[in-house]
Write a protein that binds this DNA or RNA. Structure first.
Lengths: 341, 341
DNA sequence: CACCGTCCTGTTAGCGCTAACGGTAGCGCA
DNA sequence: TGCGCTACCGTTAGCGCTAACAGGACGGTG
């Protein structure tokens, strides 16, 4: 491996010369075309190995118009959900034989989105996966009407836009149903920022489940996902003493509530039950361990790539939406409603 | 934008025809070559805008042998450090006008590394950034002797291998020095897995600082970064009552210790002081808030890209190592040594 | 006026690969 | 023998771009 004087990488021609065939035959061998005799195939493969030949993807994609690259447009990668979605997508892509190029943006402005999309398509991405969990993402993408497949995490569109998501509303309903089954009647909610689609969906799920049980949905406070916001909200909630249970829209804010409650002498779960969302690895070691809703990001990534390949390789149309079900994980932060005084 | 019948994307030739110049002149305009008159430049730019022309990067990189793409080889992206390093790198790359392709691997086998490296170089990466925080990464890379710049996070090499890192040993020493200054004499350490270079460096820092103060370094327990391992270790430590302070190698394990101590009635910081490492956003809301060591991953990413550009654009040689200093963040989990009974 | 240098533009020749087509040999069948 | 079909392999023509060279126009200088 690695001849001393390899000032230029070997190309098809070099392999061909060594194997005493035409460069086209070498190309056929590389691409597994059938009509190559076993003996020449072996000769060519030997030559490839000896020279350490590697195909030049720039040249290849110049003529095939395929790059085996999928572009991921992401924002908010500091948050647990987006970051893990990216991880899941990346892994699924690799398993499907694709590479992943990232472009991350701040916020979710239509300008930033179209910039990043251009960036990615310029690089010749065969398809796009968009992880921008804000309102308006879908509309911004639809206006661009791209000519490559686009998979949007969190919602489906039309044309070449497909979508994949974890069913946030269902997750919220599981959480609330669990609290109701424990006898709780006053169930509050600490939401994420309202311009996040997941936050909005969880609010909707909370509301619907309460409505079906004939319970009131007036205890809604808005956080910003951070533990700090959860802490501040927890302090207020501890004063008011309005609810016997709170469904918190992510685990980090739940941690903040836990600490605020601890400081104010509100016991969890004896006085108030708490449910989070995400099931971060730490959540099992909160005090007390947190009941929460787990999302399977690995599965989500796989589904994204399934949709992608269907469009790229089988020419499927877009416009479909696949949904992954979340799962309730019950731990010690929830218990039966305290007996009324 | 978007003519109705654009079944093929416009190319240089099309722009040239519209602007009544040669395709080469268009190329010059795109690449900001000086010798183009203002009037023709304006004409060409108008034509580019009207046709919505976008340069074909495959064709460009076929001839220039540059892709403006840097490959990131990463593992353990589920952990806080590697994930945030990736984030920092990605952001710095974008600011420097580069794209980022990811290849993530499981574990750190030489085989997996060389596979992923080939994958990335096949894609025509102009350089590689390696985030594989295990022993042996450097050696595996050196054996491959690549002909593109490689920046290894966590250690420097020779030849085209440069390195960038947060000074883990210094971070550990800051933590231990802080405990010593509070009067502690028996200071334990919960380490990460020994095949992680960062874990090893933190152990070394802990040991050195203790040695300089003439203190014993016999209280060492090995964890696996997870809160669960921290919890189990915490239970043992609570029984033994050996130390008045513990330096824990990351915040997640510290969380586990906190819970174990809480259950066993060991008060933090009254009975035992605790210092973590990473300063995850949640750590300020642990009970009690955690004293820890902050790493600036944004800065780390910038430094990586600085090194990269020096090699790619200015032809600098490799073999250099840049170091980012960490910072101690003091919170409520540390206090003066309890008076002896 | 001849000469040189500077500024601008065009022409030519690839970068390394694949698609499309052409050609040869060998076989089966009428 | 002639025809057609299949299996295999080679030749040619680009994909869209930039580097390198080749001018032409123009102004200044001796």
């Amino acid at each position: 491996m690695g001849n001393s004087n390899d000032r230029r990488l070997p190309r098809l021609e070099d392999v061909a010369a060594r194997a005493k065939v035409s460069h086209q035959t070498v190309s056929r061998v590389i691409n597994n075309h059938p009509n190559v005799s076993a003996s020449t195939r072996a000769r060519v493969e030997a030559a490839i190995a000896e020279l350490g030949y590697r195909r030049n993807t720039a040249a290849r994609s110049l003529v095939t118009r395929r790059t085996q690259n999928i572009g991921v447009l992401a924002s908010e990668l500091g948050q647990y959900g987006p970051a893990n979605t990216l991880l899941g997508v990346q892994q699924a892509a690799r398993e499907a034989g694709y590479f992943v190029s990232i472009a991350s943006i701040k916020g979710a402005g239509a300008e930033a989105i179209s910039d990043a999309v251009r960036h990615l398509t310029d690089q010749g991405a065969d398809g796009l996966i968009v992880i921008v969990p804000h309102d308006g993402t879908l509309q911004a993408l639809e206006r661009l009407n791209l000519d490559v497949p686009v998979i949007v995490v969190g919602g489906a569109g039309e044309g070449r836009l497909s979508g994949a998501m974890v069913d946030q509303k269902l997750g919220a309903r599981l959480a609330v149903a669990h609290l109701i089954s424990l006898g709780h009647r006053r169930i509050g909610h600490v939401s994420g920022p309202p311009d996040w689609i997941d936050a909005q969906a969880r609010v909707d799920g909370w509301r619907e489940e309460l409505a079906e049980a004939g319970l009131s949905d007036d205890l809604l406070v808005e956080g910003d996902w951070s533990a700090g916001s959860g802490y501040r909200i927890g302090q207020q909630l501890a004063e008011r003493q309005g609810a016997t249970a709170v469904f918190v829209s992510n685990d980090q804010m739940a941690l903040g509530l836990l600490r605020a409650f601890g400081e104010k002498g509100v016991r969890v779960p004896e006085d108030v039950s708490l449910v989070g969302f995400d099931d971060q690895p730490e959540s099992a070691y909160f005090m007390p361990p947190l009941t929460t809703v787990r999302q399977d990001f690995e599965e989500l990534g796989k589904r994204c790539m399934d949709l992608m390949r269907a469009q790229i390789e089988d020419g499927a149309t877009g416009g479909t939406l696949v949904v992954v079900d979340p799962e309730l994980v019950v731990r010690a932060s929830t218990a039966a409603r305290p007996a009324l005084p």
